[in-house]
């Protein structure tokens, strides 16, 4: 079983190499002729590439706006429907990845030989959360299709969200990580997910699409339960591992 709290010969710190470390510090001090710390030149390079006209990708043009038009032409007028499509695509992709993340977490919890994790974590709850992520995905697919947009397209926000959370599947799939480490990775996604559903609901309401907003209130509620449960498990595991509970 992978252990996160095992004491051992971690070699990364200065204290592990008192003699070499001292030589290294003295050398850096004496042999580095550097002026004051400055980030100006780095910032210049970065601003050279920054352009207000640049973008990472575009929001795919819907097949037609017919669905969206019939769903509330007047309501959406004066707003930017591409923002909604972008955000719906972002949630769809996130929920889809969420299914895979829970699959990985369930596998980790089922296969790990750790009595504390087994005591704290309910695999049935995890399976239930996984199924809810899948339900959210299907709900979003249906909504996107009803608006005449393409649920198979990757929207820019979907791409960037995946970029931001790239390390999470890595943590879950890594055989050497513990259940607690994996739960903390999943917590990152759940907290993000909660906030993102809130934004989506607000967006729908403000665009006059309150029916859609109502539909999304159930996933938000479920995601809140996911985040709360994961947080409680993390607390319990950490305290039990420390022998304080």
């Amino acid at each position: 079983m992978p252990q996160a709290n095992k004491m051992g010969m971690n070699k990364t710190g200065m204290a592990m190499s008192p003699i070499q470390g001292k030589q290294m510090m003295e050398g850096a001090k004496e042999l580095t002729q550097a002026g004051p710390i400055s980030f100006a030149a780095m910032e210049k390079i970065r601003s050279d590439y920054a352009s207000p006209d640049d973008y990472i990708g575009t929001v795919p043009v819907p097949d037609s706006f017919k669905g969206m038009l019939s769903a509330g032409k007047e309501k959406i007028q004066g707003h930017n429907p591409e923002v909604l499509i972008n955000k719906l695509g972002q949630r769809l992709a996130f929920e889809r990845t969420g299914v895979r993340i829970y699959d990985a977490l369930i596998f980790k919890c089922e296969t790990i030989n750790d009595p504390i994790s087994k005591e704290v974590i309910s695999i049935d709850s995890l399976k239930h959360f996984r199924d809810e992520e899948a339900e959210h995905f299907f709900l979003l697919k249906e909504v996107i299709e009803s608006l005449g947009a393409d649920p198979t397209a990757m929207t820019p926000d979907a791409d960037v969200s995946a970029l931001a959370s790239m390390g999470i599947p890595k943590v879950l799939m890594e055989p050497r990580t513990t259940v607690l480490q994996c739960l903390e990775a999943v917590q990152t996604t759940e907290l993000t997910d909660n906030a993102a559903w809130e934004v989506l609901i607000k967006l729908c309401n403000n665009m006059g699409m309150s029916e859609l907003a109502d539909k999304f209130s159930k996933p938000l509620k479920q995601e809140k339960t996911h985040a709360e449960t994961i947080k409680n498990w993390i607390n319990k595991l950490a305290l039990m591992q420390a022998g304080t509970m």
Partner: peptide, 13 residues
């Protein structure tokens, strides 16, 4: 411009 100079302006390990 020089990225290798820029990245380490004033840098002391």
């Amino acid at each position: 411009g020089s990225p290798s100079n820029a990245v380490a302006e004033g840098y002391v390990w």
